[in-house]
């Protein structure tokens, strides 16, 4: 994974891991790799991994089992909601971009349907 040096690395790692969870790369209830493993995997500072994980914990996508490590939440609703909020965010960005290009909402809808 390539990081963008202009944005805090932990935020990028947080987004990447959140995406992995909502798209099912890590399943609900599954143990996620340790800090050291993730640090090796993404070639980043373990402190950065730690920070990304605590952000994930903040939004309740993962939880800590005291000695066993960190697990993806078993509450599927949280995962679904997070996926929805991501989808919503992307849609808003897309619509805003299209509007900037001069398309109306109706035209955008037509375009999407025709492409399918």
């Amino acid at each position: 994974m390539r990081f963008n040096n202009e944005i805090p690395i932990y935020l990028q790692l947080f987004q990447k891991l959140a995406l992995d969870i909502v798209t099912g790369k890590y399943l609900s209830g599954e143990k996620i790799p340790s800090v050291r493993e993730l640090s090796n995997m993404y070639k980043v500072n373990p402190n950065t991994v730690q920070k990304a994980l605590s952000e994930l914990e903040e939004v309740k996508l993962i939880y800590t089992e005291r000695t066993n490590g960190k697990f993806v939440t078993e509450n599927k609703k949280i995962i679904k909601d997070y996926l929805k909020s991501l989808a919503k965010e992307k849609t808003i960005i897309y619509i805003n971009d299209m509007k900037d290009l001069g398309y109306s909402l109706k035209e955008i809808m037509e375009m999407i349907e025709r492409n399918e």
Binding site: F3, N5, I9, K43, V44, N45, N47, T48
Partner: peptide, 8 residues
Amino acid sequence: SDIERVLD
């Protein structure tokens, strides 16, 4: 630029 991603 080579190392900044690992720095705290």
